[in-house]
């Protein structure tokens, strides 16, 4: 494992912790898109089908369990928890996220590295993860007062994707035959979706102003 991969995983972990902190301690999910969280839960469920069949490392298995557990508990909190549910911006979070599932699945059936069930599901999870942030970004644009934790959550998620690209570049030059177009292109698309957010995040940070995205 290289430093970029580790840093990427740690920012991913940090993003989840920031979100859980907000939800669990403040009992609020204001500004958080349930649609995006549901897509992430589907992403991890379809990607980690190998969790009990292919052992890679203890680190790997633990991280998979954390991402699965946290993504489903976040969805549970927003849908079922009495207090958290009340803070959910239902009327603002209107992105039709189910419409993303079918195109991603068809694309995974057509473009994959190997036509097997596990491999197609793994590829599907990559395509879906690439676009899963869209409902969250739309919600952010509609939110007048983006609180710090929400801003940091999205920033950490974007940083995680950026670091994974550096990890792939590093692996490409250090490992023989390391060529994976599917995760690279979907990962690049995913990172580019954050570009706009990053711009305004740094602007607000530089000018010491509250984060606000232009509608």
């Amino acid at each position: 494992m290289n430093i970029f991969r580790l840093a990427g995983d740690m920012t991913h972990l940090a993003s989840v912790l920031v979100l859980l902190l907000k939800i669990h301690t403040i009992k609020s999910c204001a500004g958080i898109s349930l649609k995006t969280q549901e897509l992430f839960a589907i992403v991890f469920a379809s990607r980690y089908l190998d969790i009990f069949t292919d052992f890679i490392s203890l680190y790997n298995t633990l991280m998979k369990l954390i991402f699965l557990g946290s993504s489903f508990s976040i969805v549970w909190y927003i849908r079922r928890h009495k207090l958290v549910r009340r803070s959910y911006d239902k009327d603002q979070d209107t992105f039709r996220h189910y419409f993303l599932l079918l195109p991603c699945f068809i694309l995974a059936l057509l473009i994959n590295e190997k036509f097997t069930f596990k491999e197609v599901m793994w590829t599907f999870s990559l395509y879906l993860e690439a676009v899963a942030i869209l409902p969250q970004l739309v919600l952010l644009q509609r939110t007048k007062n983006i609180d710090n934790l929400t801003g940091q959550y999205v920033f950490l998620l974007g940083a995680y994707r950026g670091l994974y690209i550096l990890n792939w570049i590093y692996r490409y030059f250090t490992e023989p035959h390391y060529v994976h177009w599917i995760p690279w292109i979907s990962g690049l698309v995913q990172t580019l979706l954050y570009a706009d957010f990053f711009y305004y995040y740094f602007e607000s940070w530089k000018n010491n102003k509250k984060l606000q995205l232009p509608a």
Partner: peptide, 10 residues
């Protein structure tokens, strides 16, 4: 050589 897998990533 077998192609390097990237399923070791999260």
């Amino acid at each position: 050589d077998e192609k390097q897998s990237n399923h070791d990533e999260l």
